[in-house]
Design a protein around this nucleic acid. Structure first.
Length: 446
RNA sequence: GCCGCUAUCGUCUAGGGGACUAGGACGCCGCCCUCUCACGGCGGAAACCCGGGUUCGAAUCCCGGUAGCGGUACCA
């Protein structure tokens, strides 16, 4: 089995493209096949080197490696020209000066279900001759047979007058030369497939098998695009998602696994993936579920690994202690700093939290009691801190929160933080008492 | 317009003629755990697009309708 992933570098790698890449990878790795990476950069106006680098980078981040390539379509011009000449010589293609407008008016005259047929001319763009009768059948692994009546198909332009080739032609020639056995790509290519099949036929070659994946949609039900928020792999990465989670989640979108379990590593995914089981209906990308999957993977990382990733993500060092006490509370890397940044940068400025927890009845006194008790705790460990703070609660009576929340706000500035005992112990006696003192001073203005 | 594809809880899905009072997951609601927030546990609300067939029997098969989506380029 030889499969390929063939993105066009006209932008960043999108989630839909990433899933296509992933499914091809899963197929190759699960069945001992070969994955070929091909960059379809024949659209010179929109293809940039920067985009190529971005796509490669995204693929690497997702841990999707390839066996051959990247092959650049633009560098295969000689081979394309050769195949084109053959079609022209065989009369399977012809030159025509007909423009898009000519095609349109032809259809006005002959009916919209009648495909355009041109006359051979001495010069002009090259069109592939489509049979007038019969149908071209795509035997899709996922969808079964889809039939396209030849009569309704236009003779497609396969090369411009200057000889530069167009997508539907280049793809077929490249897939043929790379001996691709299975073309797995987005459903938006399904209507291109008969044209490519006709190219293979004109070339006298057998075609690969095709499998068209359902598209990924945004929450509005339309094809996923830039205006749907984080839609590229880079954006997901910047939003604090783990590659493990992104791979896992996008695999779920349409893979058709039995539903009793859905948290899988790349190798587990490759083991279970079956092309024939892929769903036929488009899936909506749901970031909330990605977040859940991400939290699951996050909690499965070793402390060292998580610290390394968070240090890389935040650009800060010395995070270990804070990570240790925050790990179980975050779902994404991005949630770490808002939760634990106060450890390094001091309490956050949150007037309303201060008023609710400290200015409110008993807050100041609770803080004073906590300060006294903490000043005497020895040694200053999580266990002793807990003992000290719980002692305060006992002596005062009432709910634990009446003591813990004022302390929390004094230290973190907000009403949400990692566990209070761990936090106090991590900050240490001096820092803790200092922050409580500053809160107490500030409380005079309540 | 034309050519296609698709149709199960809000979302992702299981289901491939009787095991369906339709299962799981995310989300949502309630309870428990609990120092906040998460995690975790328990419980709950929530779906077979409509209409015809076929069949003893249809979420499952067929046809039609409707809706959504994709394509319709000398883009990829």
């Amino acid at each position: 089995m030889r499969v390929r992933f063939a993105p066009s570098p006209t932008g960043a790698l999108h989630i839909g493209g990433a899933r296509t890449a992933l499914y091809n990878w899963l197929l190759a790795r699960g069945q001992g096949g070969v994955l070929v990476l091909r960059i379809e950069d024949t659209d010179r106006a929109r293809s940039t080197e920067e985009n190529v680098e971005q796509i490669l980078d995204a693929l690497r981040w997702l841990k999707l490696d390839w066996d051959e390539g990247p092959i650049f379509q633009s560098q295969r011009a000689a081979r394309h020209a050769e195949a084109l000449e053959r079609l022209l010589a065989d009369g399977r293609a012809y030159r025509s000066s007909a423009t898009a407008d000519d095609v349109r008016s032809y259809k006005e005259r002959h009916g919209h279900d009648r495909g355009f047929r041109g006359q051979p001319e001495a010069a002009g763009a090259v069109r592939l001759r489509v049979p007038d009768h019969g149908e071209t059948v795509v035997d899709d692994v996922i969808r079964g047979e889809t039939r396209f009546p030849n009569a309704s198909m236009d003779d497609p332009v396969i090369a411009r007058a200057d000889g530069s080739v167009l997508y539907n032609f280049a793809v077929a020639v490249d897939d043929l030369d790379a001996a691709i056995t299975h073309v797995v790509r987005g459903d938006d290519h399904l209507s291109n497939t008969p044209k490519q099949l006709l190219v293979f036929e004109a070339l006298g070659a057998g075609a690969p098998r095709y499998a068209h994946l359902p598209l990924l949609h945004g929450p509005d039900g339309r094809k996923l695009s830039k205006r749907h928020g984080a839609s590229s792999v880079q954006e997901l990465r910047a939003a604090g998602y783990l590659p493990e989670a992104v791979d896992n989640y996008i695999a779920l979108l349409g893979a058709g696994f039995a539903a009793d379990e859905e948290l899988f590593s790349l190798s587990e995914l490759a083991e279970r993936f079956r092309l024939e089981r892929v769903s036929r209906n488009p899936a909506v990308f749901d970031e909330r579920k990605l977040r859940h999957v991400n939290g699951w993977w996050l909690r499965r990382l070793s402390l060292d690994d998580l610290v390394a990733r968070l240090e890389q993500f935040t650009g800060r060092g010395g995070l270990q202690g804070a990570v240790e006490i925050s790990a179980e509370k975050i779902q994404t890397l991005a949630e770490f700093w808002p939760l634990a940044g106060f450890v390094f940068d001091g309490p956050a400025e949150d007037r309303s939290a201060f008023e609710r927890a400290i200015c409110a009845d008993g807050g100041v006194q609770a803080l004073r009691d906590a300060r006294d008790s903490l000043a005497r705790a020895e040694p200053f460990t999580e266990r002793m801190v807990e003992q000290a703070l719980r002692g305060v609660v006992e002596r005062r009576g009432g709910k634990p929160g009446a003591v813990f929340q004022p302390v929390r706000v004094a230290l973190a500035g907000t009403t949400v933080s990692p566990g209070i005992f761990e936090t106090v112990a991590l900050l240490g006696r001096e820092e803790t008492l200092g922050r409580i003192d500053r809160a107490l001073e500030r409380a005079e203005g309540c």
